[in-house]
């Protein structure tokens, strides 16, 4: 099964179970959780079920295309079910069967793995799902986002698409995956990986201090403007600028541009902004919302 077939199978499966098929957030983010289709929709009482692919950037995981398992950018298949149905684990297992994984022939396990995002003021309880010893999915019952207790509880299912495709195609190197129609993952992405890794680690024709200063400045500008957007009641654009800050922070971190005390301060700043945005979203969308935390 090719990578694109896998996406089609998962989309067909979750669409048939009532999920809206959304598109990726067209911004640089580290995970599908940052997409407003997750971050906003899990807030408040309104039921919402949605599925989408999210290209996810982890500057720190960049390996210049040399590591067979680790990349600057990978793809997550993100499913949000709100409220979380009683049969959610069974549904998930059926989705694997739809992709050609027969649970009776494998060892599939739900092992404790809780999720927490300090920058988003968010955490949840859940598992990593192991397929014959390989982590293929993160399964989380969200408890809080933006410091706000959630009710009802949403379930987030995050499939690691490359991992599952490598399993199905029995390849040991991510760049050997067949993306679709005989084209490999390497053909599609290798050059991008090399260049993005160089950027992430600051290998740019620019002195390191200037590189750091530029990114700090960008961070501060986006941060300041996110505040202006929020004050103008423009919550979605404010979130996007907050996410830009989060990504810039990741680049500052991976390129070794910030020290330890500063690092904590940056995380705190992003978190404070995310918390404000989440509260603003709840106040704007939930009638008579009482803000918490």
């Amino acid at each position: 099964m090719t990578l694109q077939d896998l996406i089609l199978k998962l989309s067909a499966f979750w669409a048939s179970h009532g999920c809206l098929l959304q598109q990726p957030l067209d911004l640089e983010v580290g995970a599908g959780t940052s997409h407003p289709e997750t971050l906003f929709r899990v807030l408040g009482p309104k039921p919402w079920s949605v599925a989408y692919v999210q290209p996810s950037r982890r500057p720190d995981d960049g390996r210049f295309g040399q590591n067979p398992n680790r990349v600057f950018k990978h793809h997550q298949y993100q499913v949000i079910l709100k409220p979380s149905p009683d049969e959610v684990q069974q549904l998930y297992l059926e989705s694997l069967e739809a992709c050609g994984i027969n649970p009776r022939q494998h060892d599939i396990r739900f092992e404790e793995d809780n999720w927490e995002s300090p920058t988003l003021g968010a955490w949840g309880i859940g598992w990593q799902v192991l397929l014959d010893g390989m982590e293929i999915t993160q399964f989380t019952y969200f408890q809080q986002v933006g410091g706000i207790d959630l009710a009802p509880i949403s379930c987030e299912i995050t499939y690691g698409l490359e991992r599952i495709a490598m399993f199905l195609q029995r390849v040991d190197n991510i760049f050997d995956l067949e993306w679709g129609g005989g084209v490999t993952y390497g053909e599609v992405r290798l050059q991008e990986e090399i260049e993005q890794s160089k950027y992430a680690f600051g290998q740019v024709d620019m002195p390191a201090e200037e590189f750091a200063a530029l990114h700090r400045e960008l961070f501060d500008k986006y941060y300041g403007f996110a505040g202006t957007l929020l004050a103008s009641g423009l919550i979605w654009p404010a979130l996007e600028h907050c996410l830009k800050c989060s990504h810039l922070f990741n680049i500052l971190d991976s390129s070794g541009s910030i020290g330890v005390t500063e690092r904590t301060a940056y995380i705190l700043r992003v978190r404070q902004l995310a918390v404000k945005i989440a509260h603003a979203y709840v106040e704007a969308t939930v009638p008579a919302a009482v803000s918490e935390g």
Binding site: P68, N69, R104, Q105, H106, D107, R109, L131, D132, G133, M134, F167, R170, D172
Partner: peptide, 23 residues
Amino acid sequence: AVTNTQGEKPEVIARNSERVLTA
């Protein structure tokens, strides 16, 4: 590896586990 199954195909589980460990 201790598995939670009485697999129809233990050799498949073994091969897959080998790939994960090797990676």
